[in-house]
Design a protein around this nucleic acid. Structure first.
Lengths: 267, 267
DNA sequence: TTATGTTAGTGTCTGTGAGGCACTATGTCA
DNA sequence: TGACATAGTGCCTCACAGACACTAACATAA
């Protein structure tokens, strides 16, 4: 951790001795770049992992895959993979590509949560993974296994720890994504993205309650949502064995509206 | 972006043909790891950059360095650098090492903000940078140039765009860090970390106002801060040319207390 | 046809903490 | 000793949260 140490050849990505270095002729950026070779340096392995959430059968679920390849072959993990340096222009390209590969979904709420890096999180060595969280409706979704995953399933969030031991530090990653989701329920309209296009207010409230972990007062919830100009009536009704309910859809601002105050919960 | 494409040798980090591959004997993870060589793969260059904020002379300032080496030699940028795979155990180790190198500070509020990655953000090719934000008191700080920076200065946030053209995508990074700070002022006690250990309530309010960009009502502010069990009296007073003010210090929870409601601003 | 149950949706109360503003308190300095 | 400046308080309104009893509209069973 000394200041001198960080200038060794393998880490500085710079010429440490401007006089004796064979590359001391580099006086322009173009020349510097000509002799620069990334493969000469010790850099971490960098990947993208994601927690894809949905609501199914009145439960918050996350997508898990069973790894078909080394390392951690046969273990359950969050879907993810490496950046394709040719096809991906940004990190979110990588994330949405992964999402599409597993679920076929290409429009969804996709949010970068946090980046994890360290020496011991992957047996291949120092590695970095950028964690994303996706919220999708599971309606009409077909999960796709491929070369990298021999199995793929929706798992209720409270069953993950009980029945699935996740590879690498994916439990930590999932926990942080879940935390982000839980904290955002309190002050945004984000969970709307977990539902299909048309939904009733009761369904929306149920979704909020599932994530929050406690019941919300119906009147407060409706006042809050209806007063925010984030949803509009489709004009249709959901008919069941009771009084039919108005159907709504989220308008543009509804995808992530910020409320001025938090949901406070029961007194 | 096709599914097939991502399995090419250089990006999958896996053996694409389990039959004909020279490594098809890999039946255990240990064997897989023995033949795994990170330098064979196309992976992005990965670094850490940071926006170090402080309050000086009634202004919010950020630390900028003038780059002494290629690429972007001679240009202003956020301090940052590469992960030292030997000495850094996690990403935040890298961040705190950088903070210490430049400012000598080793305890501060340090927070990961966002990760930026793409093909075009660095002339060396596909690169990823993990952006951190640090909040420190500039009291008794000595800025240190070194091999990588020929100059290092505090710049008032509103002067950055006016007088400094930042290298790479550092303007975007700085903007996001600043946004994060601005949004956190509304519902946390975070700005407390920008002040020295002892401060008056007026100084704290001034700090909040500088970041928010508008004045806060004195009574509201004091009620909010005093009601939250986040600060305590030192017992000393700040004497000036007026009525002396009580000095306070932040207790543990004061470093990042979450308020239930946002500061709302003038009506 | 009517009673009952269930879910949809409303009226209206209290409570909390925000903003506003006039007030008092306590120091320095001319 | 009085003007001033900044510290700190008392008390008002307002917005929006929670609570809860109420009404509305359907299916179904008696």
């Amino acid at each position: 951790m000394s200041i001198g140490h960080f200038m060794n050849d393998k880490n500085s990505h710079q010429i440490s001795d401007p006089v004796n270095s064979p590359a001391n002729k580099e006086s322009t950026e173009a020349e510097f770049l000509k002799t620069y070779n990334i493969h000469e340096f010790d850099i971490p392995l960098t990947s993208v992992d994601m927690a894809i959430f949905t609501i199914e059968h009145d439960a918050l679920k996350v997508l898990l895959v069973k790894r078909a390849q080394f390392p951690a072959k046969g273990q359950w993990a969050l879907p993810g993979g490496f950046i394709n340096l040719e096809d991906d222009n940004t990190l979110s390209d990588t994330a949405s590509r992964k999402l599409k590969e597993k679920t076929g979904v290409d429009i969804a709420h996709l949010e970068q949560v946090s980046t994890f890096g360290g020496l011991n999180r992957d047996p291949r060595g120092w590695s970095v993974t950028i964690a994303y969280m996706a919220l999708i409706s599971c309606k009409n979704i077909v999960l796709k296994s491929n070369e990298t995953s021999e199995d793929i399933v929706w798992v209720a969030i409270e069953n993950v720890n009980k029945n699935y031991k996740l590879a690498f530090d994916h439990n930590t990653i999932l926990t942080q994504c879940y935390q982000r989701l839980k904290s955002k329920v309190q002050y945004t309209s984000l969970p709307i993205n977990l539902l299909p296009r048309a939904f009733t207010l009761s369904e929306l409230q149920k979704t909020f309650e599932l994530i929050l972990g406690y019941p919300i007062e119906k009147k407060s919830f409706r006042r809050r949502v209806l007063g925010a100009d984030i949803i509009a009536k489709t004009g249709e009704m959901r008919v069941g064995s009771n009084r039919p309910a108005k159907l709504y859809y989220a308008n543009a601002s509804g995808k992530e509206h910020l409320f001025q105050r938090n949901i406070e919960g029961p007194r």
